[in-house]
């Protein structure tokens, strides 16, 4: 079997953009804003540039492995994944499409990261179960590092909120 012909960077970007997030598989790495670019390094190898959502995110090794597989499938077996910390990831980078998908799975998407703290914590966000806005932040620490838990005072159910930060 012959190796596939190497695809140009913009086509590789389109392919890596479709890789799902390992912890939130309803959204892609591009939806989350984790994939920043596909660039050619000085040595000619293609690099996928990513910014972790949370520092030392435990999903990073799985993400890097998945991206290297895509690089190889695009004809770039020598391709690399490069993490950049600056500019730091912010929840504002999550795309409109990403927000729609999160909401569709019962995870309330974040508001602006620059909003005052009570708004960022999710005060008054509509409950995904009953639609009531009589909701309250229960704990800023949830099932993953990027999620908080809110509680609805109308239907008494809890729900997940992706932290605005």
């Amino acid at each position: 079997m012959t190796a596939p012909a190497p695809l140009p960077p913009e086509e590789v970007l389109a392919r890596v953009s479709t890789v799902p997030d390992p912890e939130l598989p309803m959204v892609t790495l591009a939806d989350l804003g984790v994939v920043r670019a596909v660039e050619r390094a000085a040595d000619g190898a293609l690099e996928v540039v990513i910014t972790p959502t949370f520092l030392g995110c435990p999903a990073m090794p799985a993400i890097e492995r998945a991206l290297r597989e895509v690089l190889a499938a695009c004809g770039h077996p020598q391709g690399r994944v490069r993490q950049v910390l600056a500019p730091a990831w912010t929840s504002d980078w999550i795309s409109a499409e990403g927000r729609r998908k999160l909401a569709g799975h019962g995870i309330v998407p974040p508001g602006p990261a620059s909003a005052p703290l009570p708004v960022r914590l999710g005060l008054g966000l509509p409950c995904p179960h009953c639609g009531s806005v009589a909701t309250w932040p229960q704990s800023p620490f949830g099932a993953t590092r990027c999620q908080a838990v809110l509680v609805c005072t109308a239907c008494q159910e809890t729900f997940a909120h992706l932290k605005a930060m």
Partner: peptide, 12 residues
Amino acid sequence: GFAVRAAKEVEY
């Protein structure tokens, strides 16, 4: 780059 991100986490 680390500090910008870490400051947001530490706020919580």
